[in-house]
Computed example of a mutant assay.
Amino acid sequence: MRQPVGVILAGGQATRMGGGDKGRLVLGDRSLFAHVIGRVAPQVAELALSANGDPARLADLGLPVLPDSVAGHPGPLAGVLAGLDWAAARGATHLVSVAADTPFLPEDLVPRLLLAAEGGAPIVLAASEVEGRLVRQPTFGLWPVALREDLRDALARGVRKVGQWAGDQGASLAPFPADRIDPFFNINTARDLARARALIA
């Protein structure tokens, strides 16, 4: 399998943080966007950002901005579809998705997803390994471009849950240890941001 391309899912409305681009929040001396880009960009052939609204506001990030092709803010699956359409145009066979609000995401995310894919599953989702149990992280996945029309049809039917659609396709899980901190810890609230700042300090 060739090195996949990647997409950062940033199409949410961040209502619990007062709206706006959550990726602009500052953690340490950098934005969340900068943390995520710094960790995932070395792992993929090319990287894009899934976001809605005026793309000019994100021009400083230097990434292609991919709006949803499905109306009504249907959630992360629409961002995955936008990424798959972009990946197809780039001639890629697979896409890796990550969330924009996860500054501690694994620096070996893509190699471990690819290793898990050798088992033959069409989709691989990351999972935190917490005290012997796996907690699925559905916005972190390896997606084949070949399934993009199936996903388009599912969205048209009203499917909105990433895990539901991935499970219907026979997805497998790639475990990641969550020791001192869950590598998929995401920032949804001001309390989460404060905790992340304490951890990075």
Rank of each mutant, 00 (worst) to 15 (best):
P4I: 04
G6M: 02
G6K: 01
V7G: 00
I8F: 07
A14T: 15
A14R: 15
R16F: 00
M17T: 10
G18F: 02
G19M: 12
G19W: 11
R24K: 08
L25G: 02
V26M: 15
R30L: 10
R30E: 10
S31Y: 13
L32M: 13
A34N: 10
A34P: 12
H35T: 10
I37G: 07
R39E: 06
R39N: 06
V40F: 12
Q43T: 00
A48G: 08
N52K: 02
N52P: 02
N52R: 04
L58N: 09
D60Q: 10
D60K: 00
P64S: 09
P67L: 12
S69R: 13
V70D: 09
A71G: 07
G75D: 10
A78I: 00
A78Y: 05
G79F: 09
G79A: 11
A82P: 00
G83T: 08
L84H: 11
W86L: 05
W86E: 02
A87E: 14
A92V: 01
H94V: 01
L95C: 06
V98F: 12
A99C: 13
A100H: 14
A100N: 08
T102M: 14
T102Y: 07
P103Q: 12
P106G: 09
E107N: 00
L109M: 03
V110G: 03
P111D: 06
L113G: 11
L114G: 10
L115H: 14
L115Y: 06
A116G: 12
A121L: 07
P122H: 14
P122G: 14
P122F: 12
A126Q: 05
A126Y: 05
A127P: 04
R133A: 15
V135D: 15
R136G: 00
G141D: 05
L142Q: 03
A146N: 05
A146V: 00
R152A: 15
R152M: 01
A154Q: 08
R157F: 02
G158N: 02
K161M: 09
K161H: 13
V162P: 03
G163N: 12
G163S: 14
G170M: 14
D182M: 00
D182W: 09
D182N: 08
F184E: 06
F184P: 03
F185M: 05
N186C: 12
I187N: 13
N188G: 15
A190N: 03
R191S: 15
L193Y: 11
R197L: 11
R197D: 04
L199S: 13
A201I: 11
